[in-house]
Amino acid sequence: MLRARTFAATAMLSFLMAACGHHVGPRPGQLSLGMVTDVGGLGDRSFNDSAYRGLLRARDQLGAYVEVLQSRSAADYQPNIEALTNQRVDMTFAIGFLMSTDLDQIARNHPDRHYAIIDAVVDDPNVVSVTFREQDGSFLAGALAAMMSTTKHIAFLGGEDVPLLRKFEAGYTAGAHEVDPSVTVDVKYVGSFDDVAAGQELGNVLYNGGADIIFAAAGTAGLGAINAAKSRSGAYVIGVDSDQDALAPGKILTSMVKHVDVAVFDVARGMQQHRPIAGHLTLGLSDDAIGLTNFTFTRTAIGAARLRRLSAIRRAIIAGKIVPPDTREALAAWKPVAL
């Protein structure tokens, strides 16, 4: 009993001491940036981590004070954004389309504060909406896969079957058909962004089904598909979001990189230069926010001819000659464009 009381007393003491501790916060005049992750949280080696890199770059290059709040459930989004708002950070980044409803409400209640949201459009004068033309980068990935496939059979592996992932799926399929309309594109979804084993198993199912290249847009579960490619000769996989090429050198054809970090940093820089960006930013190939990696390990395997054709396609997308579809409906109506 005595021991229990000492235990409680020590705990209480440290608690009280803590209560008198110093509060950390931005210095006067320092740019302060807040970020709310979605339920994937930091460490997803993908979306949230990429946004965090942009924030850290703002800290290092712009001298900004940064604060990150992670969300455990959808119910955490609103309080997290509110908390940063109440700390009067100069700009709060909401990372993920699921936060759009909550951000819209908060932004209307605080017209004097600035916000940014990634992957969704929130129509308020004090919100910057950043979306990416994932279909453009995926289109290039599909085109490359179709050129490289020896079986004329490629595949797409998504995490969860949600509209955002269908942008990848539609762009990839159209890109393949741009190169060769006879290429077969198998499509499967893991049903989770976490289940690495299922990612690997589905990767094997797709390879066994005849596909020799898989575009794995499945978060952590995609690491399983990369594993599946490793043990097969003649098989490639395409990574996603971050540059994953070094995870399996030579086996990862390229990664379809989505530079959330670039977007976060650019918006932060705008804030610092007292010209906050508002409205809707759609970032794509020409902004270097979306694109393929520079083929460090696969350049020779791909060859100069294919790379030339790929950059022709890239220029055609930027010029608006090719408009990659971003939904299954748009894909069904889409026709290859003669270049």
Partner: peptide
């Protein structure tokens, strides 16, 4: 732990919000 508890305490009870 000082900073951590300061954050815990302020985050849970430090204001109306």
């Amino acid at each position: 732990p000082i900073d951590g508890f300061a954050a815990l305490f302020a985050g849970a009870l430090g204001g109306t919000h």
